[in-house]
C-alpha cells in the first residue's frame, strides 16, 4: 500500500513537472515544440544539425541543446528549443525514429548546416542563421541564439501591438509598430510595406523608399530589359526621379547611378552619359559594392570615351 502511494506521488510529480512552464522549454521533437509553443505563445528555436556527419553542428547540439545549457538568464521571453537531426547514413531503425522526431520539419531556406531557425508558434519562419552567421565558438553561438530570441520576441510583440492598434483604428500606433517591425533583421510579414504605405502615403521619413529599394540585381536587370525594349528615355527619367529622393543611403544612390549607366549603355550614342553615370557611382559611395561596379564599368568600357 505504501509503495502504491509512493508511485502515485511520483507520477503526480512527473505530470506536474512536465506541465510546468518556466519560460524556457526543451522539446523532444519538432511537433512537440510547436504544441508547446502554441500553448504558451512562444518563439520556437530549432537547431538543425547532422549528428553523424557534421562536427560543428554536433558541437553546438552537445554543448547547448542536449545539455540544455543555453544561457537562459538573459532570456526573458517564452521560448521553446528543439533540434532536428539530419542524418547522413542512418540504419532503418534510426531513420524511422529520427523521421518521427523531425516530423513536420521542412528545410525551408536552408543551404548550409548547422542552421538555427526561429519560428512563430504558428510555424511562420522568421529567420535562418546559417553558414558564417553561425559562429564556431559555442559562447558566440549562445549569443547568436539570444539575439535571435530577442528579435523574434520583439517581432511577436510589435505584430501584436500593430494588430491591436488596427482593431482599435489607432493608425498612429499601428504605423509606429509596423515601422519598427519592418526594420528587424527577420523575414517580414506579407504586405507590410503596402500597409505602411496606406498608413503613411506621404512616406514622411522616407522609410518606405529605403525599405522598398530594389535589390541591385533586380534594378539592373529591369533597367537592361526595359531599355533593350526601347523604353530607355522613360527608364532614365524614372531613375533620375529616384535620385531626387533625399532619403536614400549613399550606397543606394550609387546603385541608381550604375542603373543609369546601364540605361545609357544600351542606347546608341549615349557613351558619354554612361561614362559619367558609372563615374558618379564610383564617387558617391567609395568602397561600396555599387561604387566598385561603377569603377570597373568605367575603367573597362568608357575610360577612353570623350
Amino acid at each position: 500500500m505504501n509503495n502504491l502511494k509512493k508511485i502515485i506521488i511520483l507520477i503526480a510529480i512527473a505530470v506536474l513537472a512536465s506541465n510546468s512552464w518556466a519560460g524556457v522549454y526543451f522539446a523532444n521533437s519538432y511537433e512537440q515544440a510547436f504544441q508547446a509553443a502554441k500553448k504558451h505563445n512562444s518563439i520556437v528555436i530549432v537547431l538543425v544539425h547532422g549528428s553523424d556527419w557534421n562536427v560543428k553542428g554536433q558541437k553546438i547540439y552537445t554543448s547547448l541543446f542536449k545539455t540544455k545549457t543555453i544561457n537562459r538568464s538573459s532570456v526573458k521571453d517564452n521560448v521553446v528549443f528543439t533540434d532536428v537531426d539530419i542524418l547522413q547514413s542512418p540504419s532503418e531503425f534510426q531513420k524511422t525514429n529520427n523521421d518521427q522526431r523531425n516530423k513536420g520539419f521542412k528545410p525551408q531556406g536552408i543551404h548550409s548546416y548547422p542552421a538555427i531557425c526561429s519560428y512563430l508558434p504558428d510555424g511562420t519562419l522568421l529567420a535562418v542563421k546559417q553558414g558564417q552567421d553561425v559562429p564556431t565558438e559555442v559562447i558566440k553561438v549562445n549569443k547568436t541564439v539570444i539575439t535571435l530570441i530577442e528579435d523574434s520576441a520583439k517581432y511577436q510583440n510589435l505584430k501584436a501591438t500593430a494588430d491591436k492598434a488596427n482593431k482599435a483604428k489607432d493608425t498612429k500606433a499601428e504605423l509606429a509598430a509596423l515601422t519598427e517591425l519592418a526594420q528587424l533583421p527577420l523575414n517580414q510579414p506579407k504586405d507590410i510595406l503596402k500597409r505602411i504605405k496606406e498608413l503613411d502615403p506621404a512616406d514622411t521619413d522616407g522609410l518606405q523608399a529605403r525599405l522598398s529599394f530594389p535589390h541591385w540585381q533586380k534594378l539592373f536587370a529591369d533597367t537592361t530589359s526595359r531599355t533593350q525594349k526601347g523604353q530607355g528615355p522613360e527608364v532614365e527619367k524614372e531613375l533620375n526621379e529616384m535620385l531626387k529622393n533625399k532619403v536614400y543611403t549613399k550606397e543606394q544612390l550609387a546603385t541608381i547611378h550604375v542603373a543609369i549607366g546601364i540605361c545609357h549603355r544600351h542606347q546608341a550614342g549615349h557613351e558619354a552619359q554612361a561614362a559619367v553615370a558609372f563615374q558618379q557611382a564610383a564617387q558617391i559611395a567609395p568602397g561600396t559594392f555599387p561604387a566598385e561596379v561603377g569603377t570597373r564599368c568605367y575603367e573597362a568600357w568608357y575610360k577612353k570615351t570623350k
Binding site: K56, T224, I262, H266
Partner: peptide, 26 residues
C-alpha cells in the same frame, strides 16, 4: 561555410547559383 550538406545532397548544390545566360547588364 556557404554550402555544407549531408553527402547525398551535393547533387543539388549547383542550384545555389542562379542559371543566367545573360547577366543583369545584358
Amino acid at each position: 561555410q556557404r554550402i555544407c550538406l549531408p553527402r547525398k545532397d551535393y547533387v543539388g548544390a549547383c542550384w545555389q547559383a542562379p542559371y543566367r545566360g545573360h547577366n543583369c547588364f545584358g
